[in-house]
Amino acid sequence: MKRRKRGNDLLLHAILLTILGLTLVPFVFLLNNSFRSNYELDHAFFGIPEALVKKDWAAMFQSYRDAWQVLRPYTANTLFVAAITALGVTGMGSITAFVFSRYRFPGHRFLFMCVLSFMMIPGILTLVPSFLLVKKLGLLNSYWVLILPYIAGGQVFAIFLFKSFFDGLPGELFESARMDGASHLKQYTALVLPLSKQVLSVVLVTNILGTWNNFLWPLVTNSDAKYQTISAGLYGMGSSTLAVNYSNLFAAYALSSIPMLILFLYATKPFMAGLTSGAFKA
């Protein structure tokens, strides 16, 4: 019986390792070919970079230097927009959810259901009306055309998560705070926020990822390269003179993933803790 179980475990691990290997093939191909010239790519799909064999480090990392010169302003734009958006969504969403969770006013349930109903509307359906609105407001080709819609669009999911978490907090905590003379703002800042670090990390990570990976909205609203984000910048690189050398594009793709890899390394633990702490409970 033990042999059979061990055999099944070995088979399962072999299948998982095979799937993992197949998943990593594109990433290995990307990194490897970011160090290879067009001549090398034309003669061998996979292969060790000649610069590595010759230990010509300057030539080996030239594609990364060229790609970074183009990506640097796009990366700065994206980091700025992602930071402001994440803070805006987290701040406004947590305050709104706190009001919905702890205060009973006429129509509060109806208003909350109206907020949740927006989750059923596909974002692509609002693309044209949103574009016409920001155009009429004169927000095109600016940071605000990205920040304001992102904050508005991220509120629904954030309010849902925060309210679900706040509903699970003991009411005795708030009663004790009120008896000690704590105002509504004090309860929010000194009581709710310190207890909500895990769900805050969930909202922050999901919003940063969404902002970083968003492609269509930045592309159609910002024709000025000064305000473009990294996803639209990568698309534009494909038709620039830099794309003559394929290694430049591969290097740009690798560089653009580094901030998200860093976020993954540092935010995985609090993010998973937020998922298991009741952030997604119904």
Rank of each mutant, 00 (worst) to 15 (best):
A177M: 06
A86R: 04
A273D: 14
N38A: 14
W57E: 00
A252V: 07
S240Q: 12
L17T: 11
P149I: 05
A58L: 12
F105I: 10
Y39G: 10
S256L: 05
Y188F: 15
G93S: 02
L191F: 06
V156N: 07
S164A: 14
V156M: 11
R178P: 01
L209C: 11
N214D: 14
S239H: 10
G278N: 11
K54I: 13
Y39T: 15
D66K: 10
V115I: 14
A14P: 01
T90L: 08
I262M: 12
V220T: 07
K5E: 15
L169N: 06
L133Q: 11
L24C: 13
V220W: 06
A97G: 01
P26F: 08
L275C: 13
T229Q: 08
G238W: 00
A158K: 03
F162K: 12
A82Y: 04
I48N: 06
L52G: 08
P270A: 06
R4C: 11
I121W: 01
G171L: 10
R109Y: 00
V192C: 01
P129M: 08
L133S: 11
L146H: 02
L16H: 05
Q187M: 09
P106S: 11
H108N: 14
V199Q: 04
L185T: 14
A97V: 07
N248T: 15
L30R: 12
Q155L: 15
L249G: 02
L20H: 04
L71H: 09
W57G: 03
V205A: 05
A58T: 11
Y227V: 07
G154D: 08
Y143Q: 12
V70K: 03
I48W: 01
S94C: 09
H184L: 11
N38T: 09
F46K: 01
G236H: 13
Y246H: 09
I95A: 06
A76P: 01
M260V: 07
V192F: 12
